[in-house]
Design a protein around this nucleic acid. Sequence first.
RNA 1: GCGCGUUUAGCUCAGUGGUAGAGCGUCUCAUUGACAUUGAGAAGGCCAGAAGUUCAAUUCUUCUAACGCGCACCA
Length: 708
Amino acid sequence: MLDKKYDWKAVEGKIYDAWEKSGYFAPEAHQPSADNPNAGKPFTIIMPPPNANGSLHIGHALFVATQDILIRYKRMKGYKALWLPGADHAGFETQVVYTKKLEREGRKFWDTPRDQLYQEILDFTLANKSHMESQLRALGASCDFSREKFTLDEDIKKVVYETFKRLYDDGLVYRGARIINWCARHQTSLSDLEVVSPELDDTFYYFKYGPFEIATARPETKFGDKYVVVHPDDKRYKDYKHGQKFELEWINGPITATLIKDDSIDVDFGTGAMTITPWHDSADFEIAERHGLDKEQIIDWQGRLLPIAQEFAGQHISKARPAIVEKLENKGLLVKKEAYKHTVPQCYKCGTAIEPQIRPQWFVAMTKKPRPKGARLAQRIWAAILRRKSLRDLALSAVKKGEVQFVSERFKNEFLRWMENLRDWNISRQIVWGIRIPAWYKGEEVYIGENSPGEGWKQDEDVFDTWFGSGQWPFATLMTTKKGDFEEFYPTDVMETGWDILFFWVARMIMLGKYRTGKVPFKTVYLHGLVRDKDRQKMSKSKGNVIDPLGVAEEYGTDAVRMALIAGNAPGTDPVISEEKIKGYRNFATKIWNMAKYVFEFAKEEGDGALDKKVLDEYEKVRADVSRYFDEYKLHLACEIAYHYVWHTVADDVIEANKRGEVSLAMLKKIFRGCLIMLHPFMPFVTEELYQKLPFEDKEDFLMVENW
RNA sequence: GCGCGUUUAGCUCAGUGGUAGAGCGUCUCAUUGACAUUGAGAAGGCCAGAAGUUCAAUUCUUCUAACGCGCACCA
């Protein structure tokens, strides 16, 4: 006898423990019958490792549901299904979280020695990691915890070091004093992706600069400006010669300026003449590089003016700007001011204005072709695999050739477009939390390796951009789990993640995966969006509309939450979820439970079964449709078809027909078993519980490994 | 500036070359019959606008509008 109601609180933990104890989460455990056409075929998903700096939120629940559904489906189909879980130390993100935690405790981040900070953050991260693992279990994730990896595992770090070394020997990473994005608040550089550029209202100033008139939005950077640049074809300035010098009165007295002609100038913008600040502007930097001009730092690392500003030295740039404008105005050098709308780069975390600075950093070359040297030169086979392609071209050709498919298709174009305009990737971060860059310096010499080459060598102070490590995740994990895993499970099948990290992560995985292994890291990229509430709002603590997945799972059952996350949400769009929707699917779980009670406790045994054939045909058709949608990665359709069939065909019609004697009990049981199988990937707990309790014939020990 | 997406029931969203679907909401009826965390039924949509292709368009094409998003070194 089944209980009157389905009590998920009593069932879920028990079922999950039994699954885990069975060992079936490991791909090698389940042996389908030998005639299963998929027997022995690997199917692999590497879980995007959640940032171990907090709890799992609804977005995590979405990826857990999606990936678990895919894995369970394939496992039931007979594949050797591996879902490899992990956790991300999430360098900068976690350091920011930890800094805030320290501030709440009245401590200051930089008051603590580096080694101690590292240890504290490690403890914090490992505690979160273990909490997240229990949350994954609560959500029903059938991932193989025996293969779990952490981005700071020693063996993972060794893979990352090795990649860096190879890139270095191939000339694809280099250390250079180039323009970087500096956040004065966080005291670190950021990659181009970590900079956001909202459009702001500002003022555009026109100043007299000797015989020229120049325009700028940043007067505070102009102290060191001693070059005025015009376009070579600009008729207004045709009487001036490149390199010509002239005297002029400027902020702090007379200076000598030099005229430069450069094609990059837009003659229609401003006055067609501009002064440049090569240390604090990437475009100016490029001009200075082209003409071999001096570069001078004007603003320090805290955003204050340096001694070159004389009376303004030590002032923060935000305060200095009006004072400088006033001084120029008093000197009669201000021509006019204009209201001006332009994009201002900001730190994506704290909104602090990004100050471009020159600083020696490590960069990954995106468009340069490898030039193997030293030991690398000997590896001819490797060079052949690479075909001497740049990292960008490796990824571009892989995607263009269809080695990587995108769900949805439109992301492919977005990906290609982004790849076309790539700039070199700054991977140095001035933070403590992460993998220390394995570069050692002695005078002009550079050594790349994990350990010091000897006396007198000093290691680079910086750590890698987190994405440099996680960009190697698919191969780094499989190279360091069980022997033979890499050979068997790489390339993986699906990478399911949010489209917001398409460039941060997916692009880097394809580039670095191709580079290290010669193969793409995954065959399909399945992208989901940002979970929103029923009014289409982003969820945020300040709006108070956050849905805690574990909380609602406790209240309505994990199966209901999973259904609500998948149903009606097409891949690539922002999924919408609400408590009402979850309730609706909780009712569905109840419905399934009551259907089981009818089939095994109340159903009619007599009758002619006149509709058996029709019922079976319809069942077969639905099963085929659901399978097809699975194979097309249209989980929302597979889900809805199964849902609709079970409720509105089996419950509404087939059971009613049985009451009239038109469907035999044997057929009813067969169909209901099929319903459990079909629903299991979506609603694993209630289906498994019923499977365990009901007296089906020739049962497997778990529905999880029942043949689809 | 360039590119992309969205526009379908009161709300949030699926879907489709041939009498439109889900969740929630609304209304009516049914309560010792598997199921009130229910069942049966109903109301509610010229599928943004215009043109084109087609025997047939909500679905394909083009244009328009509104909203949203991404990318870009215009000082």
